[in-house]
Computed example of a mutant assay.
Amino acid sequence: MAKAKILMSQPIHEEGTKYITSRGYEARVAPDFTEATLIKEIQDAHGFLVRTAEIPASVINAGKVLKAIGRHGVGYDNIDVKAATARKIPVCITPRANALSVAEHVLALMLALAKRIIPFDAATRRNEWEIRNSYSAFDLDGKTLGILGMGRIGMLVCQKARAAFNMKVLAYDPLVPKEAMEKAGAQVGAIPEILKASDFVTLHVPSMPETKGMIGESQLKMMKRSAYLINCARGPIVDEAALVKALKDGTIAGAGLDVFDPEPPKADNPLFTLPSVVLSPHSAGLTVECVIRMATHAAQAIIDVLEGRRPEGVVNPEALE
């Protein structure tokens, strides 16, 4: 009997591939992730492990024997979940895989901005030693951190910021019980009051129509002129043009960004010219430990479905009914 096939839209860490084959399944990586190629490759696949490729209904519907989709990460805005649900195909994310890595990255961006790591490094390499007397770096200890979105990542950021830097944390999340946020050490508030009071504001909400542009010109104007915005969630959550304007005008002091709109950003993106910004290429969740967790957890979810078990992280539970 032929092995059931699990198709991967893009390569995953070898530990993920080993996980699949060690359990008796065929692991196949698509030659590329264009729509036409995926439509061809998915036709005999029982499972589909997706990274960042766009997966429209046309691809899902081409999977004649497709039973499960595993997302290599937690964002699933690149997958047509409605089409999968119509076919009774569960879409599973990896909720435990990237929270720690992304939370650490948030703190890294905060430290880089507070300690002026990027400009100090550049000046030191130019032998501009006197920059040390600019006294422009500052401590995180005792500062106020606003967290919009208190899911797994937001909770970890809250706990780590309090434990490492004695930060006061203000939090907002309409989907998380107030008691749970307070138990994590956060003071719960509304978005406007959080923006006005925070020295750093970090975003941890999903990308959806309701959150598109939730941080725009009016929200940026609520922030302190000395405040910094951190976004390691999704690019469309922030109105990028409004952010550029706010940074140029001095409406806020700076930003740390791991995500953009679109991705990859265009070569002439004005953010690239701003010295008050620290950037990374949507890599917060791409530590070696994290990519192994994402690959193996996504594979496990697919295998759970194929073997009749309820998988973790199903975003469309109605597909299992």
Rank of each mutant, 00 (worst) to 15 (best):
V314D: 13
L111V: 11
L229H: 00
M150D: 03
G154L: 11
M223H: 02
R116S: 11
G24H: 13
I39P: 00
L175G: 13
H204S: 01
A45W: 04
P206G: 07
L111K: 04
P281K: 04
I6A: 07
E54P: 06
R125Y: 08
K5C: 03
M214P: 05
L247P: 10
S280Q: 03
G256P: 02
P262L: 14
T287M: 04
R71F: 03
I117C: 13
H204A: 02
K160L: 15
V305Y: 14
R234Y: 02
R309V: 08
G308N: 09
K88G: 12
I237N: 00
A186S: 13
I6Y: 05
L49Q: 13
A284S: 04
T37H: 01
S22A: 14
A197T: 03
M1H: 12
L140H: 09
T251Y: 11
A190P: 07
A36R: 05
I153V: 08
H13S: 09
I230D: 02
A161V: 10
Q159G: 10
Q10V: 04
P56K: 14
P177Q: 15
R162I: 15
A161I: 10
K18W: 03
I292H: 06
M223T: 03
Y76T: 03
N231T: 01
K115G: 14
M222P: 12
M150K: 01
S226F: 10
A27P: 10
D249K: 15
A83Q: 06
L320S: 07
I237G: 01
H46S: 15
A108E: 04
T296D: 11
T94K: 08
F200M: 01
R51E: 12
Y25R: 06
K64V: 00
V169H: 03
Q300V: 05
Y25V: 05
V278E: 09
G254T: 13
G63S: 12
N231K: 00
F33Y: 14
S136L: 12
C92M: 13
P11I: 08
R87V: 06
E318A: 14
A253T: 11
T144Y: 10
T85K: 04
L271F: 15
S283A: 05
L38V: 06
L140A: 11
R51N: 14
A241I: 11
V91K: 15
D139C: 12
N78H: 13
A163E: 14
V81W: 02
L257A: 00
A112G: 11
G285C: 00
K168Q: 13
P236C: 02
E14R: 02
A227V: 04
L100P: 04
M110V: 05
